[in-house]
Design a protein around this nucleic acid. Structure first.
Lengths: 138, 138
DNA sequence: CAGTATCCACTTAGATACTG
DNA sequence: CAGTATCTAAGTGGATACTG
């Protein structure tokens, strides 16, 4: 066992690369935002309940209505993870029944703005990409 | 059947929202880049074979080596879809055996630059996010 | 209102082996 | 060298029903 087979060496370099990816900040960010609902929630909170304006707090049910079709499971799960990452804040007001509202934190807002860069690129170029996909006969 | 039940109305608005998402350029872009290998390939082609410099063409096997651990299946599949979208170009040189090289197109380069914006944000803020996740007791 | 809990269907990635 | 083909394991989202 002093030497390695080629297969073992390959497996090892692969494991190292995977380990590298696991700590790569960019990959971690992509893992975070690569979720349908994450970007939608950030965008919703960044545009207010009527999708027109300023960042604003929104309630659970407002979000559920805005993101039509999200299951409560996914909404809660996504909100929780965003909260754990400090991207949004959750505020409970002890009315009866309780009122819960969510809001972007400062860093969440900064992420949302970065995502706007992507959005802009998308709106400018996605047509072109889609057109290319059509013509290249897929 | 003239009227709809509440459940039917909900199902319908959900379907409409899903249809909207399906054509939303931002979501389509995210679908595109939300793939581990997509960003890695774009970054590899944008940084040259030695990861240091200028955008450069790379061969299939160079990519396979750079992205240690990618299976031929995923590499081919990802390259093909990027090519179909016009983000990279594939050039076959009829040597024996054949030489195939991949290169960013103009629009692919522009996307890669946009992704750099994400990378930058990630490198600046991911520590903070990760730290927050730790302290919030998950 | 604001969730929680459970179960299922489906996409996707990876391993592996073979080929022009 | 540059792929293709097949099979399987696993993560992930969605439907649904119930609760403090």
């Amino acid at each position: 066992m002093a030497t390695m087979t080629a297969a073992e060496r390959r497996a090892e370099s692969k494991a190292m690369y995977n380990a590298f990816l696991a700590v790569c900040p960019s990959q971690k960010l992509l893992d975070r935002i690569s979720n349908k609902w994450v970007t939608l929630i950030l965008t919703a909170l960044g545009s207010g309940p009527d999708c027109t304006g300023e960042p604003a707090a929104m309630r659970y049910s407002e979000l559920a209505r805005t993101l039509a079709g999200v299951s409560p499971k996914m909404l809660t799960q996504t909100l929780r993870s965003l909260e754990a990452d400090g991207l949004i804040s959750r505020t409970v007001t002890p009315t009866v029944p309780v009122t819960v509202s969510y809001e972007l934190t400062e860093i969440g807002l900064s992420l949302q703005q970065t995502i706007r860069g992507l959005k802009l690129w998308a709106e400018t170029h996605m047509d072109e990409i889609f057109a290319h996909r059509q013509t290249s006969g897929v």
